[in-house]
Amino acid sequence: MNLDNIRIVLVNTSHPGNIGGVARAMKNMGLSRLYLVEPRQYPHEKATWRAASALDVLEGAVVTGALDEAIADCQFVVGTSARGRRIPWPLLDPRHCAERVADLSGREQVAILFGREDRGLTNEELKVCNLHLNIPTSAHYSSLNLAMAVQIVCYELRMLLDADRLSAAEDAQWDAAFATRDNMERFYIHLEETLIDIGFLDPAAPRQLMARLRRLYSRVRLDEMELNILRGILTETQKFAPRDDGLKVD
């Protein structure tokens, strides 16, 4: 992915504060190319105020008098759309759209269009797009602020860009090795023995208890330290429960 090949295009934006909010949302996620098609109020102090620490993105915005000028050199254009169209068009959600954009941006210029706050993009504007993007929302309240919509799309791009780093960081931060299958089996034996000792499990009528407990612990990957803690709790519990001679836990 090449974020420098991705531009956010705002068409005929009504409120200057939304332009500043979009600039901030873009900078949060590492995008910097902002195009403004016939903004109704720009430049404006409200845009500057809302941009906060993203003034570089705001001041670098390209203002054009027509959509064609903003996307003339683009090979792939995405248009955000909140409603279905009479003629079906390729339509994706932000996550799958980001995957497509990420792939193409390595070698092509990509534009993502956002329409007017009150009515979005017109049918004519959507016709110039290769793909339509729809952000799923609750049926009870589907209206999204312009900056929020841009933030969602930019966030999905950021997550793809940082996927390898985030995965490596997650693995690197864990402080103990995950438990081996052999040690987990020893734990299950110890757990079953303890439950019998305290009278919670009747071996004559187990009622799938151990199977369900196996399923419970399998949903979370225990590390060796966590496993040792649980084994220690079981050992201490057994000290307070009289038990018959049976299988000893090693």
Results as ranks from 00 to 15, higher is better:
S218L: 13
L227V: 08
T194W: 00
I233A: 12
L191R: 01
T194Q: 06
R214C: 04
P206Q: 13
R215N: 11
E236P: 02
R221N: 15
R231S: 12
K239L: 07
R212V: 03
Q208D: 15
T235E: 13
R231M: 15
R207S: 12
L227K: 06
G199N: 11
R231D: 14
L216T: 07
D202G: 05
I229A: 04
I233G: 05
T237S: 08
L201C: 02
R221P: 11
T235M: 09
R207C: 08
R215T: 15
T235D: 11
I233K: 04
L209H: 04
R215F: 10
L230D: 07
L227N: 10
I229V: 15
D197F: 00
R215L: 13
A211R: 13
N228H: 11
I198N: 00
S218C: 10
V220K: 12
L230P: 04
L234P: 01
R215A: 14
L222M: 15
T194Y: 00
L191A: 03
L234C: 03
T194F: 01
L222E: 09
I198F: 00
I229D: 07
L227T: 05
G232M: 08
P206K: 13
R214L: 05
R231V: 03
E193V: 10
I229F: 03
A205K: 14
P203W: 04
A205S: 14
D202V: 03
M210I: 12
M225R: 13
R207F: 05
L227M: 14
G199V: 10
Q208S: 14
S218M: 14
R221F: 11
A211Y: 09
K239R: 13
L234S: 02
I229H: 03
R215Q: 14
I198C: 04
M225I: 09
N228R: 13
